[in-house]
């Protein structure tokens, strides 16, 4: 103990010495560079050199990752607080933004980063699954619109998986030895853009695209795909995005952006499908959380009665946000318990 303390004193003395010598070397080149800035510089440089153990990116980590910090400090709801105070320009902003105190920060500073990190373990799988789930949501609503003979409306939703998500998941597909499926998706989009005149061709193209996403999902271990905790994390990712998209669909109390309404419908549709897969297990293991999630999901889903928008919104965007938060809170009870 005393040895560590001695090292600590020694380090701070050393960094102080460096600081002093630094400020001596740069005599008032700019008056706007006070010592305080140099000291954050010195401390961040030290943080960078202290590696070891996988760090948590406070700008992008999902709640269950942030829970490790919450557990370490024993501060209730810290994960949500960290998420709510994003973005962070450096890790010290956790203190500057009053998310944690300086002594708390000192306990976790080696665990956090703002640099791009290679995700590992479950966090990596959740990230992969969530991206594929968003693709699936897009394709599901596209299918509904194709079935309604609305290829022009279906087209953006066939485009979104490639335009917004594919580049973000490509490395992981390679790593998991999943066959690339960008080409079939683009071919399907071209076909639909051209008016989807050849129904058989569109049907086959759609089926193979959907199958490709399913195959990519199947690269995850089955135990994980069936684990309520894992599936709930994916559902949170879907609902979170659905929430933002729904907000972006409404202006003047009307649904004015059909694309965003449909995006959010697709994500919620797939979230429901995913939940169906774990609902029996949930009912058995977490009856309270199950009841709350099931009821709230049912009400939430009524927001999107049809693939084409209703004349008046069923729910306001605030109501949708609230329901999504309720579900998120219930899922957190489960993911923390497991």
């Amino acid at each position: 103990m005393s040895i560590f303390r001695f090292i600590g004193y020694f380090c701070s003395a050393l960094s102080l010495a460096i600081l002093i010598s630094c400020s001596n070397q740069t005599p008032n080149a700019t008056t706007s560079a006070p010592a305080a800035q140099s000291s954050t510089q010195a401390s961040s440089a030290m943080n960078h050199s202290m590696s070891g153990g996988r760090k948590i990116n406070i700008n992008s980590a999902i709640l269950s990752e942030l829970d490790k910090l919450e557990a370490k400090l024993g501060v209730p709801a810290l994960s949500n607080k960290i998420q709510a105070s994003r973005p962070y320009g450096n890790v010290e902003e956790l203190v500057a933004k009053n998310v944690v105190t300086q002594p708390q920060f000192d306990q976790i500073k080696d665990m956090v980063t703002i640099e791009d990190i290679q995700l590992e373990g479950e966090a990596k799988d959740v990230d992969y699954m969530t991206k594929l789930a968003l693709m699936k949501g897009h394709l599901m609503v596209a299918k509904e619109l194709l079935d309604l003979q609305k290829p022009d409306q279906a087209e953006p939703h066939i485009g979104h998986p490639v335009e917004e998500i594919y580049a973000d998941v490509e490395d992981q597909l390679n790593e998991r030895k999943v066959q690339a499926f960008k080409e079939p998706l683009i071919a399907l989009q071209d076909e639909v853009k051209a008016g989807a005149k050849d129904a058989a061709k569109v049907g086959t193209g759609f089926k193979s695209s959907m199958q490709s996403v399913d195959t990519a999902i199947a690269a995850l271990p089955e135990t994980q795909r069936n684990s309520p905790s894992f599936v709930l994390k994916t559902i949170n990712g879907l609902l979170d995005t659905a929430n933002s998209e729904y907000g972006a669909a409404i202006a003047d109390g009307k649904i004015s952006q059909l694309i965003e309404y449909q995006d959010s419908r697709g994500f919620v549709t797939y979230a429901n499908e995913l939940y169906d897969g774990i609902s029996a297990q949930m009912a058995k293991e977490y009856p309270d959380a199950h009841k709350e999630i099931e009821t709230t999901m049912a009400t939430l889903t009524k927001t999107w009665p049809t693939p084409t928008a209703p004349a008046a919104p069923v729910s306001t965007s605030d109501e949708v946000s609230k329901m999504v938060k309720t579900i998120e809170a219930s899922t957190q009870k489960v993911t923390k318990a497991s």
Partner: peptide, 9 residues
């Protein structure tokens, strides 16, 4: 050109 997903930095 790399997409930055909703709610990420």
């Amino acid at each position: 050109i790399k997409p930055v997903r909703n709610n990420t930095v």
